[in-house]
């Protein structure tokens, strides 16, 4: 009897402790979960719902009706298709965002890698360099947008002056005001601002490569170039991929910098800028929500691909 009660009560007590612990954990997590539900969960669900309605931003301007997928694609009575999926401005915004993201992320990676390798070399002054590259990162995005807007200013901007002396610009023109160069002018701002961030991430990766591997390569007579391609690059790949994905996610969501510099100009309109214009300025909450949701889905697809292909670990 005594033995059997012992063996029965011991698991029960352990289960009791486990339950108490689990309940405590629940209470500890509750505030975070409530806040996240309030700022992320509920607004997202509401965005999904609104994207199937014709809701206006200002609820006084009329009732909301459920219109199915009409925000996305809608065949009018005269047989013409309307809606987000056939809106040329949306596709311009998508294309701009893709061009902006791909080019700026590639340039940032190359430049960041160069910065990181210079800082990682055993040369005097690298501490100064590491500190200096934090400056663009520390400057608020809006401030850096204004700083560059000033340098790009049509007549008084220093970059416009350089453009004129190189014969690339005519008087009163700037790389920002010319429609065919505006997006690339913004890429230059983004590269300047975020290459340092890239450099910091890659520097951490570089410092993780043991020095004796280079010594061994040196002994074997491998040239510096060969060491870079056979040793540095393969060992850096994990850090490189993580940094690449993070920057791409950021670039796909970009809003602040192009908006501050060019507002709603179509040649530099990104997906997020297009969404805000519809949500807030046009006051079409329903249609704008459809745009937001599509952006959300694009980002999520990208994230899922990233999590599965990089096998991000959680525990």
């Amino acid at each position: 009897m005594a033995i059997s009660t012992g063996s029965v009560s011991r698991p029960r007590r352990r289960a009791g402790i486990e339950t108490t612990r689990a309940r405590t954990a629940m209470w500890l997590l509750l505030p975070t979960v409530i806040v996240l539900a309030l700022v992320a969960g509920y607004p997202l669900l509401r965005t999904i719902y609104l994207s199937f309605t014709d809701a206006p931003l200002n609820s006084n301007s009329g009732p909301t009706t459920f219109i199915g997928f009409d925000n996305y694609l809608f065949k009018g009575e005269d047989g013409t298709w309307t809606g987000l999926l056939v809106d040329p401005v949306w596709w311009t915004a998508v294309w701009n965002t893709v061009k902006f993201s791909v080019v700026s992320v590639v340039l940032e990676t190359l430049l960041g890698l160069m910065f990181a390798m210079v800082i990682n070399s055993k040369i005097k002054g690298r501490g100064l360099l590491r500190t200096a590259i934090l400056v663009p990162w520390a400057i608020p995005t809006v401030v850096s947008a204004q700083m560059w807007a000033w340098m790009y200013q049509d007549n008084l901007g220093v970059i416009s002056q350089w453009g004129r002396s190189l014969g690339l610009l005519e008087a009163g023109q700037s790389f920002l005001s010319k429609t065919d160069t505006a997006l690339w002018a913004l890429v230059a701002v983004d590269v300047w601002k975020t290459a340092p961030f890239m450099a910091l991430l890659l520097l951490a990766g570089l410092q993780g490569i043991p020095a004796d591997m280079y010594e061994a390569a040196e002994v074997d007579g491998a040239s510096k170039l060969r060491q870079f391609f056979r040793l540095t690059l393969p060992l850096l790949t994990p850090a490189l991929l993580v940094a690449l994905v993070f920057r791409t996610l950021d670039a796909l969501r970009v809003f602040d910098m192009p908006f501050v510099v060019k507002q709603y100009a179509q040649e530099t309109m990104t997906m997020s800028i297009y969404a805000r214009q519809n949500l807030i300025d046009f006051g079409t909450l329903g249609y704008g929500s459809a745009v937001s949701l599509l952006i959300f889905l694009i980002i999520m697809v990208f994230t899922v691909i990233y999590v599965t292909s990089l096998r991000v670990r959680f525990d």
Binding site: L45, S272, L293, F296
Partner: peptide, 27 residues
Amino acid sequence: FRFRGKTALMYIILGVSVFPQIAVLGG
């Protein structure tokens, strides 16, 4: 602490961290 649903919660929190702000702007 050990409790059920921990991994799922970690996934959700990671998911929120990549939320595009624009997706919740209207909501």
